[in-house]
Amino acid sequence: MSLWNTEDRFGLVTRVLHWVMALGVIGMLGFGTYIANMTVNMSNFHLYAWHKSIGLTLLLLALVRIVWHLGSRVPKSLPAPKWQEALARVVHFGLFLLLLAVPLTGWIASAATGIDVVFWGVTLPSIAPASEAWEDAFFAAHGVLTKLLLAAIVLHIAGAVKRRDGTLRRMVRGQA
Protein backbone atom coordinates (compact mmCIF):
# COMPACT_ATOMS: atom_id res chain seq x y z
CA MET A 1 0.00 0.00 0.00
CA SER A 2 1.66 3.17 -1.21
CA LEU A 3 1.44 6.55 0.45
CA TRP A 4 1.76 8.21 -2.94
CA ASN A 5 -0.68 8.39 -5.84
CA THR A 6 0.28 6.58 -9.01
CA GLU A 7 -1.02 6.86 -12.55
CA ASP A 8 -3.88 4.47 -11.82
CA ARG A 9 -4.48 4.54 -8.05
CA PHE A 10 -4.92 6.89 -5.13
CA GLY A 11 -2.32 6.62 -2.39
CA LEU A 12 -3.04 6.34 1.31
CA VAL A 13 -2.36 10.03 2.03
CA THR A 14 -4.91 11.20 -0.56
CA ARG A 15 -7.53 8.74 0.66
CA VAL A 16 -7.05 9.53 4.35
CA LEU A 17 -7.21 13.28 3.70
CA HIS A 18 -10.34 12.80 1.56
CA TRP A 19 -12.23 10.72 4.12
CA VAL A 20 -11.16 12.70 7.21
CA MET A 21 -12.26 15.88 5.43
CA ALA A 22 -15.51 14.26 4.26
CA LEU A 23 -16.47 13.09 7.74
CA GLY A 24 -15.37 16.36 9.32
CA VAL A 25 -17.22 18.58 6.87
CA ILE A 26 -20.44 16.55 6.98
CA GLY A 27 -20.25 16.49 10.77
CA MET A 28 -19.66 20.23 10.88
CA LEU A 29 -22.63 20.90 8.60
CA GLY A 30 -24.83 19.11 11.12
CA PHE A 31 -23.12 20.66 14.14
CA GLY A 32 -23.28 24.14 12.63
CA THR A 33 -26.98 23.76 11.89
CA TYR A 34 -27.55 22.65 15.47
CA ILE A 35 -25.72 25.59 17.07
CA ALA A 36 -27.18 28.11 14.61
CA ASN A 37 -30.60 27.30 16.05
CA MET A 38 -29.55 27.64 19.70
CA THR A 39 -29.89 30.67 21.90
CA VAL A 40 -26.38 31.71 22.93
CA ASN A 41 -25.77 31.58 26.67
CA MET A 42 -22.96 30.68 29.03
CA SER A 43 -24.06 27.03 29.30
CA ASN A 44 -23.56 26.40 25.56
CA PHE A 45 -20.89 28.95 24.66
CA HIS A 46 -18.25 26.18 24.59
CA LEU A 47 -20.04 24.60 21.62
CA TYR A 48 -19.28 27.69 19.53
CA ALA A 49 -15.61 27.43 20.54
CA TRP A 50 -15.56 23.78 19.44
CA HIS A 51 -17.22 24.72 16.14
CA LYS A 52 -14.57 27.37 15.50
CA SER A 53 -11.67 25.07 16.41
CA ILE A 54 -12.96 22.19 14.31
CA GLY A 55 -13.71 24.56 11.42
CA LEU A 56 -10.22 26.04 11.50
CA THR A 57 -8.76 22.52 11.72
CA LEU A 58 -10.71 21.65 8.56
CA LEU A 59 -9.36 24.82 6.93
CA LEU A 60 -5.80 23.70 7.71
CA LEU A 61 -6.55 20.21 6.40
CA ALA A 62 -8.01 21.74 3.23
CA LEU A 63 -4.79 23.70 2.71
CA VAL A 64 -2.74 20.53 3.28
CA ARG A 65 -5.01 18.69 0.86
CA ILE A 66 -4.62 21.37 -1.82
CA VAL A 67 -0.83 21.41 -1.45
CA TRP A 68 -0.78 17.60 -1.58
CA HIS A 69 -3.04 17.61 -4.65
CA LEU A 70 -0.84 20.15 -6.45
CA GLY A 71 2.36 18.31 -5.55
CA SER A 72 1.32 14.75 -6.22
CA ARG A 73 0.39 12.82 -9.32
CA VAL A 74 -3.35 12.61 -9.93
CA PRO A 75 -4.50 9.21 -11.18
CA LYS A 76 -5.96 9.35 -14.67
CA SER A 77 -9.74 9.52 -14.79
CA LEU A 78 -11.72 6.45 -15.63
CA PRO A 79 -13.45 6.74 -19.03
CA ALA A 80 -16.65 8.79 -18.92
CA PRO A 81 -18.69 11.02 -21.21
CA LYS A 82 -17.11 14.47 -21.68
CA TRP A 83 -19.99 16.25 -19.90
CA GLN A 84 -19.48 14.06 -16.81
CA GLU A 85 -15.75 14.77 -16.79
CA ALA A 86 -16.42 18.51 -17.13
CA LEU A 87 -19.05 18.47 -14.37
CA ALA A 88 -16.71 16.49 -12.10
CA ARG A 89 -13.94 19.07 -12.62
CA VAL A 90 -16.33 21.96 -11.85
CA VAL A 91 -17.68 20.24 -8.73
CA HIS A 92 -14.17 19.37 -7.47
CA PHE A 93 -12.98 22.94 -8.04
CA GLY A 94 -16.09 24.26 -6.29
CA LEU A 95 -15.55 21.91 -3.37
CA PHE A 96 -11.96 23.09 -2.92
CA LEU A 97 -13.04 26.75 -3.06
CA LEU A 98 -15.85 26.16 -0.59
CA LEU A 99 -13.58 24.20 1.76
CA LEU A 100 -11.57 27.42 2.03
CA ALA A 101 -14.37 30.00 1.86
CA VAL A 102 -16.71 28.47 4.46
CA PRO A 103 -14.24 28.44 7.38
CA LEU A 104 -12.72 31.78 6.33
CA THR A 105 -16.10 33.54 6.34
CA GLY A 106 -16.87 31.94 9.70
CA TRP A 107 -13.54 33.14 11.10
CA ILE A 108 -14.06 36.67 9.77
CA ALA A 109 -17.63 36.78 11.11
CA SER A 110 -16.50 35.49 14.51
CA ALA A 111 -13.69 38.05 14.67
CA ALA A 112 -16.17 40.80 13.74
CA THR A 113 -18.21 40.02 16.88
CA GLY A 114 -15.33 41.45 18.91
CA ILE A 115 -14.99 38.16 20.81
CA ASP A 116 -11.61 36.45 20.58
CA VAL A 117 -11.36 33.53 18.18
CA VAL A 118 -9.68 30.72 20.08
CA PHE A 119 -8.20 27.76 18.22
CA TRP A 120 -7.83 24.80 20.59
CA GLY A 121 -6.84 27.13 23.43
CA VAL A 122 -4.71 29.55 21.38
CA THR A 123 -6.14 33.03 20.82
CA LEU A 124 -5.77 33.97 17.16
CA PRO A 125 -5.12 37.49 15.92
CA SER A 126 -8.26 39.26 14.80
CA ILE A 127 -8.67 39.20 11.03
CA ALA A 128 -11.61 41.63 10.94
CA PRO A 129 -12.63 44.80 12.72
CA ALA A 130 -15.27 44.51 15.43
CA SER A 131 -18.26 45.57 13.38
CA GLU A 132 -21.92 44.60 13.43
CA ALA A 133 -22.09 45.17 9.66
CA TRP A 134 -19.14 42.84 9.05
CA GLU A 135 -20.54 40.31 11.51
CA ASP A 136 -23.94 40.26 9.78
CA ALA A 137 -22.49 40.18 6.26
CA PHE A 138 -19.97 37.42 6.92
CA PHE A 139 -22.32 35.23 8.97
CA ALA A 140 -24.83 35.58 6.10
CA ALA A 141 -22.10 34.63 3.59
CA HIS A 142 -21.07 31.72 5.84
CA GLY A 143 -24.65 30.46 5.85
CA VAL A 144 -25.06 30.72 2.06
CA LEU A 145 -21.69 29.10 1.40
CA THR A 146 -22.47 26.18 3.71
CA LYS A 147 -25.64 25.53 1.69
CA LEU A 148 -23.61 25.64 -1.53
CA LEU A 149 -21.09 23.27 0.06
CA LEU A 150 -23.89 20.86 0.94
CA ALA A 151 -25.16 21.00 -2.66
CA ALA A 152 -21.66 20.35 -4.01
CA ILE A 153 -21.25 17.40 -1.62
CA VAL A 154 -24.55 15.92 -2.80
CA LEU A 155 -23.43 16.29 -6.44
CA HIS A 156 -20.04 14.77 -5.61
CA ILE A 157 -21.57 11.76 -3.84
CA ALA A 158 -24.20 11.29 -6.57
CA GLY A 159 -21.52 11.34 -9.25
CA ALA A 160 -19.35 8.82 -7.42
CA VAL A 161 -22.25 6.46 -6.75
CA LYS A 162 -23.83 6.80 -10.21
CA ARG A 163 -20.68 5.97 -12.16
CA ARG A 164 -20.45 2.33 -10.98
CA ASP A 165 -17.16 2.02 -12.80
CA GLY A 166 -14.77 1.73 -9.89
CA THR A 167 -14.45 5.45 -9.13
CA LEU A 168 -15.74 5.06 -5.57
CA ARG A 169 -13.66 1.90 -5.01
CA ARG A 170 -10.55 3.86 -6.02
CA MET A 171 -11.18 6.39 -3.25
CA VAL A 172 -11.88 3.65 -0.71
CA ARG A 173 -9.25 1.02 -1.60
CA GLY A 174 -6.95 2.99 -3.87
CA GLN A 175 -7.67 1.05 -7.06
CA ALA A 176 -10.74 0.09 -9.08
Rank of each mutant, 00 (worst) to 15 (best):
M1T: 13
S2G: 11
W4H: 13
W4A: 14
N5L: 01
E7Y: 14
D8F: 05
R9K: 13
G11N: 05
L12Q: 13
L12T: 10
V13R: 04
R15P: 01
V16P: 06
V16M: 08
L17I: 07
W19N: 07
W19S: 06
V20E: 03
V20M: 05
M21A: 11
A22D: 00
G24M: 04
G24A: 04
L29Y: 09
L29E: 02
G30W: 10
Y34A: 12
Y34V: 09
I35E: 05
I35Y: 00
I35T: 11
M38Q: 15
T39S: 14
V40I: 14
V40P: 11
V40S: 13
N44E: 03
Y48V: 01
Y48K: 06
A49W: 02
W50T: 13
H51S: 04
S53H: 04
I54H: 02
I54K: 02
L56Y: 02
T57M: 04
T57D: 03
L60I: 09
L60Q: 11
L61H: 08
L61G: 00
A62G: 00
L63Y: 09
L63F: 11
V64N: 08
V67K: 04
H69N: 09
H69T: 11
L70W: 13
L70M: 15
G71Q: 07
G71E: 04
R73P: 06
V74W: 10
V74I: 13
V74N: 14
P75R: 07
P75V: 09
S77Y: 14
L78H: 10
P81T: 05
K82Q: 15
W83L: 08
W83A: 11
W83Y: 14
W83Q: 07
W83G: 03
W83R: 15
E85H: 14
L87D: 00
A88D: 01
A88T: 11
H92V: 03
F93K: 11
F93D: 12
F93H: 09
G94Q: 02
L95I: 09
L95R: 00
F96E: 10
F96K: 09
L97N: 07
L97E: 00
L99M: 14
L99P: 00
L99N: 12
L100H: 06
P103G: 04
L104Q: 06
L104I: 13
T105Y: 02
G106E: 00
G106L: 01
A111D: 11
A111K: 00
A111W: 00
T113H: 07
T113R: 10
G121F: 09
V122F: 15
L124I: 07
P125Y: 06
S126K: 14
I127V: 11
A128L: 02
P129F: 10
A130Q: 15
A130V: 08
S131M: 09
E135A: 13
D136Y: 13
A137V: 08
F138M: 12
F139C: 01
A140S: 12
A140Y: 14
A140K: 06
A141E: 03
H142W: 03
V144F: 01
V144D: 08
T146D: 03
L148F: 12
L149G: 11
L150N: 00
L150T: 10
A151L: 14
A151V: 12
I153F: 05
V154W: 07
H156N: 11
A158Y: 12
V161P: 08
K162I: 02
R163D: 07
G166S: 05
L168T: 02
R170N: 08
R173E: 09
R173G: 06
R173T: 14
